[in-house]
Every structure is written in C-alpha cells, then in structure tokens.
C-alpha cells in the first residue's frame, strides 16, 4: 500500500505565545516547535497500515525550513520517505491544499492521512479540501479505522454520537486523538532519520483568498477570588454564582 501522511510543525502546546511586531504573525523567537499532535496519530496509523498491508510511508510537509523538523520527527517514528514542499509565500489554506494536492497526485497514493486539525490555525480544513481537489472520498476526525485490501471502515464522533463509514481506496482519512497511541521514536530511528535524504519540491505561489488583518490577545480575565475552604464555602459560592455572577 502506497501511503502518504501530511505533517506540519506547530508551536509546542506548552508554550505561551507572543505576537510579532507586525501584529499579524506570532513571534517565533525562543519558541519551541513540535510535530502537530494530530499528525502524530496520522503518522502512527500510516505505520500500522504499512505493517499490516506492506508498502511505503511517505511524509509530506509544506512550509519553510522549519518543515524539515516535522519530516525528521516523522522519519524517526519510522516513515520511509520525506518530501519538503517549499513555501513560496503569500499562500492561504486553500493554496496549501492545492499545492499539496498537486504533489499527492504525482505520488499516486492509495491512502492519505492528515491530522484532524493543525493546532496553530485550528482550521481542520486542509484534509477535506485535498480529498475534494483530488476527487477521492474521505472521512475526517477518525477515532477508529479498519482496513481490508481495498476497503476501509472508519468511525468518527459527532456531538451526541458516533457515525461509521465505508469507503474504497484511494481515500483520505484525518486522524483524531483516540485512533491509536503514537509510538516514541527510538534512538536508532532518530539516527536513521538524520541521514535520510529529503526530497525538495519548489511550489508555485497560489493567490490567497483570505488575509490576516491582526492578531490580538484574548481579554484578560479579572482576578478571581478564593471563596473559602472545604464544604463550608459552598453556600457562599452558590450565593455568588446566583447573585453576583448570575449564572445559576
């Protein structure tokens, strides 16, 4: 099975973020970056499918030089090949999807994995966009996947239940937490990943249809108060919630 995984580097979820001087992007100075957590599930699932069906796992990342780290991390987990699609600048979500779709089309993959969302822009858009552009079926936010030779069943959660789909390959799946337990890269994996050749693709700019006007910090919460200790504090808490906060 010829499998592709789309991976992105994002700020560490631990990090507090600073807005850059342009007020449109974050300041990346002193910021630690990690593989997007949902993409870890995607890479893990690709490796599990390869173990089951054979084949190769190619990880693909669109971005500047930082994207290489996402690729190395995925290679260290066990991916076979890596492709760095260089960001020509000025691209928005649909532009990223179009660029990646063109690269994926060349690769003739049977199964494509992406994350449910990148925890930076939180759009959750690139996966379903690519499936649409490639004209292949997809299921997003998958928490359970079963595969046979060329058939998949995929489950996902919605607000209030679970829905299960059946589809045939080629197909695209976006991975949600719960799909699997991503493995840690072994020392050997990390060493091998350092030596692997990363294929570079130069992308053409795609005119953006959206424009970031401004980034701001969310309003600060006013300082709260400790109502008291233990069960004795409960009546006063309830009174405050009713009379002061008016939420009960």
């Amino acid at each position: 099975m010829n499998i592709a995984v789309l991976v992105k580097l994002v700020p560490d979820t631990e990090a507090s973020l600073k807005i850059g001087d342009d007020h449109r992007y974050i300041s990346t100075a002193d910021l630690n970056f990690v593989l997007n957590p949902y993409d870890e599930y995607a890479v893990e699932e690709a490796l599990l499918q390869k173990a089951k069906h054979g084949g190769t796992v190619t990880v693909i990342s669109f971005g500047g030089d930082e994207a290489v780290k996402a690729l190395r991390n995925s290679l260290a987990m066990g991916a076979d090949n890596a492709v760095h699609v260089k960001n020509p600048g000025g691209i928005d979500l649909l532009g990223v999807a179009k660029t990646l779709a063109a690269v994926l089309k060349e690769g003739r993959y049977d199964l494509i994995f992406a994350g449910k969302q990148a925890v930076d822009d939180d759009s959750g858009a690139v996966g379903p966009m690519i499936a649409t552009l490639l004209d292949i079926p997809h299921v997003s936010s998958v928490i359970k996947l079963e595969t046979e030779a060329d058939k998949l069943t995929a489950e996902r959660e919605f607000e209030g239940g679970v829905e299960r789909f059946e589809l045939t390959l080629p197909a695209l799946i976006t991975a949600h937490k719960g799909l699997n337990e991503p493995r840690y890269a072994s020392l050997k994996g990390i060493m091998m990943a350092k030596k692997k050749q990363i294929e570079v693709v130069e992308a053409e700019p795609v005119p953006a249809k959206t424009e970031v006007l401004r980034l701001t910090y969310p309003p600060l919460r006013p300082p709260g108060k400790i109502v008291g200790e233990g069960r004795e504090a409960v009546p006063e808490l309830i009174r405050l919630l009713k009379e002061e906060a008016k939420v009960l």
Binding site: P11, T13, S16, L17, I19, I26, V119, D120, D121, D122, A208, K209, T210, E211, V212, L213, R214, L215, T216, Y217, P218
Partner: peptide
C-alpha cells in the same frame, strides 16, 4: 480564536 484560544485572529476574505 487560533492556537486553541491563546490568540485571537481578525481574518478577511479578499475574494
């Protein structure tokens, strides 16, 4: 909200 609500983005459509 972006970055899981750590920041707020103003975003405009240009087409």
């Amino acid at each position: 909200p972006v970055y899981a609500g750590k920041l707020i983005m103003n975003l405009a459509a240009t087409s």
